[in-house]
Computed example of a mutant assay.
Amino acid sequence: MSLPLAGIRIVTMAEQYPGPYATLVLADLGADVVIVERPRGGDPARQLADFHAALNRGKRSVALDLKLDADRADLRKLIESADVFMEGFRPGTMARLGFGYEDVSRINPRAVYVSITGFGQTGPYRDRPAHDLSYQAIAGLLHRQAHTGQPELPPELAIGDLSSAMFAVTGCLAALLERVRTGRGKYVDVSMTDGLVSWMSVFLGPLMNGGELGMTQINGQPAYGVFPCADGRLLTLSVTHEDWFWAPLCEVLGLPALAAIGSMERTVREPELRPLIAAALLKRGRDEWGPLLDRAGVAWGPVNSLEEVTKDPHFHARGMFQRVAECDGNESWYVAQPLVFDDGEHPGPTAGVPAIGQHNETILKSDGKVKALG
């Protein structure tokens, strides 16, 4: 299939989670992603082999030791061929190695330079070490705990890492588009924490302007939440202000007297109404409720285990799980690129995970010139 980023080369030194996820998306869209790894050990995330594999399929690996003049020269030649250079080290690290934005721009003025850091290149926190949980805390995602003073289990999904990856993809594509007009690359400063603050817009904007928090109103609806069924399994109802979901839900649950209660009144009466909904759902198992809720057109979903997700017929029909060949000849399952283009096919995955330095010979010629894409 024709891929939108075919012919684009991305040279990346961004390790761990945000950079690898961003370049995973870009690789699936057709970019030639060349990972520059440390010769001994590679990306530190390789210590978590399955985690690393999920993020780095479909890429190529070159192992370079930047303490060596010859390897620094190889990286400069790679940068000459790059459309994008991505890194994820603390501010100033790449400049000390001789590959900061100004250095890379002198080597290749057309290269887009993307830096992913926890707090960005400026500000009083720029040098502070942290991981995803701390970024979420600072950005207000744990605001409920701030109000109650009661700690809860950390979120399982690294939202800061993933949101920054998607902002890196957005910034990268925007800068490449601008390059069509200007002929020059651009510097993209991606802060994990800034991205999370942006994602909190519907909380922070109303607060700063003296308005009402819309998401708080949604969470205060009696049929918005997780509920147990008779078989001990869980389902979600996601009925918010829409009366056209509420009325049929009441009919299905055997609560027709509640069907005419409007959205605002439901919020006020939430402490009274939620237990009635919960009690009704305890009368049947989840597999019994599913068809009834579907036929009524009610917004709902099962609370799936990870195993149930991998077996869900909808995701298989969508082609979300695919097998590809590894460098050792075996095959592995991967989650597919979620974007589907007009030919109805997912653009990735196309290949498995490269070994450390697997492509030194195929990318770096013996005469010192960098091979073209392919």
Rank of each mutant, 00 (worst) to 15 (best):
G171M: 14
G183R: 09
D161Y: 03
F203E: 10
R179A: 11
D161W: 05
M192V: 01
I159S: 11
E178R: 15
P155N: 09
D189M: 00
L173R: 10
T182R: 12
T170C: 13
L207T: 15
A175L: 06
G171N: 11
P206F: 08
G160H: 03
L157T: 15
A175M: 04
W199K: 10
G195A: 12
V188S: 00
F167T: 04
M166H: 05
E156H: 12
A158M: 12
T170M: 14
A158Q: 09
D161S: 07
L162N: 05
G195D: 06
M200Q: 11
S198D: 14
A174M: 13
R184A: 13
A168E: 04
G195I: 10
P154A: 07
P206Y: 07
V180F: 08
S201R: 10
A168K: 08
G183K: 07
P206V: 08
L162A: 06
S164P: 01
L196D: 05
V190S: 01
M200S: 09
A168V: 03
D189V: 00
E178I: 03
T182M: 07
G195Q: 08
A174E: 07
G183T: 02
V190D: 00
V197Q: 05
T182A: 09
T182P: 05
V188E: 00
A174D: 04
C172S: 15
G185F: 07
S164H: 01
V190N: 01
C172P: 01
P154S: 02
S164G: 13
G160A: 14
I159V: 15
A165C: 06
S191R: 03
L162Y: 09
L177P: 00
S164L: 07
V188K: 00
S164E: 03
